[in-house]
Simulated assay, not measured.
Amino acid sequence: MLHVNTHVMASSPKARLYGGMDAEERRAERRLKLIDAAVEVYGEVGYRGATVKAICEAAELTERYFYESFANSEALLIAAYSHVVGHLHEEMAAAAGAAGDDSEARLRAALTLYFTRLKQHPKPARVFLLEIAGIGPAVDAVKHDALRAFSDILVPQASDPKRGDKGSLISIGMIGAVIGIALRWVSKQYPQAIEDVVAVAASFCRVALAEADKSKLRSV
């Protein structure tokens, strides 16, 4: 008689599959659903107006799955922000890369992609521009890292540590100007054409670009 070890069968990888995914993949899928739902809810009522219940309902998940992935609402905000910004930065970097080696062309390509996405996707734009402000130290740290990455895409030379404090200040000013322009443009419901907004934003970035070029010449 053939004896089957049912314990081994129950614990085999194949037995743990459900809908073609194992337990870890299902957790990752639920986490992404919560992030996507959070972006939608934040975009409608803001972070402070959002509740765990509302986000779980939008994700079509029970609240117990929220705490499977996130310790609290702030942790979800950080994940949602990182998700939105990560995709945006990837697209901006790709647009800049496709523009070739010319610094001005790369800058305008990245800015055009940035403002285009803000207009096309207003809910993620709200997360990126508005909902991340004034929450707490952990959120501020994530935002700081994201802004540094943003600067690296627009004017990579501006982030060169060899340029010292002056370079850092110029980089901070450049990003502050671009974000400020974006905030006003989005809040006013996009009154100017994208190319006009890009032209204004690029004029501020050129200050950082010109300073970086000067530093490069001095080092030769």
Rank of each mutant, 00 (worst) to 15 (best):
I175V: 08
I132C: 05
A75M: 12
E25D: 12
A146P: 11
V4N: 13
V142I: 09
A94R: 12
K216R: 15
I179H: 03
A201T: 01
H89D: 04
A54L: 13
E60R: 11
E57M: 13
H7L: 06
A75C: 10
K14M: 13
Y81P: 06
I170K: 04
G176L: 04
L154M: 00
P124W: 05
V8Q: 07
K216M: 15
D102P: 02
S168R: 06
A141I: 00
V220T: 14
D213N: 13
V39Q: 02
I179G: 00
A210L: 15
H144N: 13
H7Q: 09
H144S: 14
I170Q: 00
A98V: 04
F66L: 01
V127A: 01
E74Q: 08
R108A: 01
A96K: 00
R27D: 12
P156R: 09
L17F: 01
A212W: 00
I172W: 12
V127G: 05
A54G: 15
T62Q: 05
V4R: 11
A202F: 06
G173Q: 00
A208C: 08
F150Y: 13
G49T: 02
S11T: 10
P124Y: 06
A15E: 03
V200K: 03
R163Q: 13
E63D: 14
R30C: 10
L77W: 10
L107M: 08
G164E: 08
A110Q: 10
P161K: 08
V220A: 13
D160M: 05
V45G: 06
F66N: 00
W185S: 03
R30G: 11
I175G: 01
V139T: 10
L154S: 01
A71K: 06
D102A: 01
D160F: 05
D160W: 10
L61P: 14
L147F: 13
T112V: 12
F128T: 00
V200F: 09
R26I: 04
V45A: 09
E104A: 04
S187E: 05
S103Y: 06
R48M: 04
L147N: 15
V8E: 12
A59T: 02
V198C: 04
H121Y: 15
K119E: 15
A59Q: 02
S82I: 10
K214R: 14
A146N: 03
Y114V: 10
E90A: 07
A182M: 06
V4Q: 14
N72F: 12
A58L: 00
R16Y: 14
V8C: 08
R64P: 15
A99W: 07
R206K: 08
V127H: 01
L118D: 05
P122F: 07
I35Y: 05
I179Y: 00
R206G: 05
M1I: 14
A208F: 07
A10C: 08
V45K: 04
K188C: 14
E74L: 03
K123N: 07
V127K: 00
V39W: 02
I153Y: 02
L61W: 07
E91L: 08
T62S: 05
L32I: 06
R26N: 03
L111K: 01
S73W: 07
